[in-house]
Amino acid sequence: MLEGPDLLWGGIFPAVCAAATIAILWRATSKAASAWRTSVLVGYLAGHWTLSARDLGAAALLQRGELEAAGTHWAYDPRNFEFVAALAKSFNASEAHHWVPLLALLAALPDAIAALGKLGPAVGWLLRAALCVFLPWRLLDGSKYLPLSLGPEFDLDLGGWSTGEAAAWIGGIGATLLLAWQIVRRGHSDGDHQDGNLRAVLATLVAFGSTITMVGAKSIVLGQLLGVLTATLAGCTLASMILRTQRGPDAAAGPLIVIFGALLTTGHFFAELTLVNAALLLAAMSLAAGWLPVPTTLSKRWRNAARAAACLLLLGVPVVLSGRELAGQMPSAEKEATTEVNPYENFKP
């Protein structure tokens, strides 16, 4: 399933883009927070749009009957990709995951605004709350949960949530995301340089575990997008360690939580990611990247150990369960052997 072009465009490319962005911005401005925030955005958007452009490029080549002429390595050549169509798709989306780039761009605003002036923090908080409620509504609008009318031709009960259910789900998801965002934002307040590196590594691990879980939830597309986020965080982490930016993923709390939260929400409602697994993964990401609720009297070593243990425990449950599910779907050697048995070998006419 995972081929060379997937690794290149969904892994190496976003990682390099993220690392290059953090390096350029850190050298140019020495502002670690905005460098982290921008590089998470740049890395994710680069990977998301490139994968989308590649898929659209394959369709265009097929429709023009040029796929064979493009050769077996067409997917390595970005000249075959449809970048304009991929960008347009994010602003005129039909599927929930197409909205993620736009939501990620919006997520960069509140934390940037919060740093401006006296009213900045209050405005930033309001924008954060508004975006956290907008996110689930935007992803679910028009789906079977919040259906749109099919027109006068079809007199059909479309089902969907009642107003109360819709308010509870959207409010609940919004409040959970807002809480996660606040936890991650507070990461810097109790961290130092080493802590930042550990948080970055743990956040990358959580994103990687989420990729496995999402593939186990039978969505390769959403798994690929979580893979892009993993690569982006890996690129940022590596560059941040080398450059000693003294910040971690808490600086990119907005884009990180919105991208991660949007993909988990999409995975739960449109693939088979269970609510428990989604909640565990979000909790793992919040603890990995953000504030850790342990006594401040604990030494740094014990705090780091507690963070790593809590995060890996929360991550381990969904990953192990998904791994077992995935393994169960693979044809086992025993099954293969049974298919080779000839039921007629003892048959004597």
Binding site: E95, H97, K144, K218, I220, L222, F270
Partner: peptide, 16 residues
């Protein structure tokens, strides 16, 4: 699921 028909997001195929 979301890789193909995305039945939760697009529960119906219609022709008029």
């Amino acid at each position: 699921n979301a890789d193909f028909f995305n039945a939760s997001q697009f529960p119906h195929i219609t022709f008029v």
